[in-house]
């Protein structure tokens, strides 16, 4: 089962255990589709449009574009 984004299959993936929780991705997300707590981060599937701006902006390469789709 693939996770479902607003525009179909979710293709954006935050690599588990590697995030520094800096919030750069949240700041560039046009859809308000990233939730960041003290040390927890997640994509809000129903809002994400796979636009990839978070992927390009991540300073430490922990957000990836997965063209196969992200498994639930």
């Amino acid at each position: 089962m693939y996770r479902q984004a607003k525009t179909g299959k979710l293709l954006i993936e935050i690599l588990p255990g590697k995030c520094d929780f800096c919030g750069c991705c949240v700041g560039v997300c046009p859809e308000d589709a990233i939730e960041l707590k003290e040390a927890e981060i997640s994509i809000i599937d129903s809002l994400c449009t796979n636009c990839s701006k978070c992927v390009w902006s991540c300073p430490i390469e922990v957000i990836k574009f997965n063209k196969e789709g992200v498994l639930a």
Partner: peptide, 16 residues
């Protein structure tokens, strides 16, 4: 901070 979402919830466009 940079990760602010509060403005958006109030209808202010804050994303960069």
């Amino acid at each position: 901070g940079v990760e602010s979402r509060i403005g958006r919830w109030a209808g202010i466009e804050t994303f960069t």
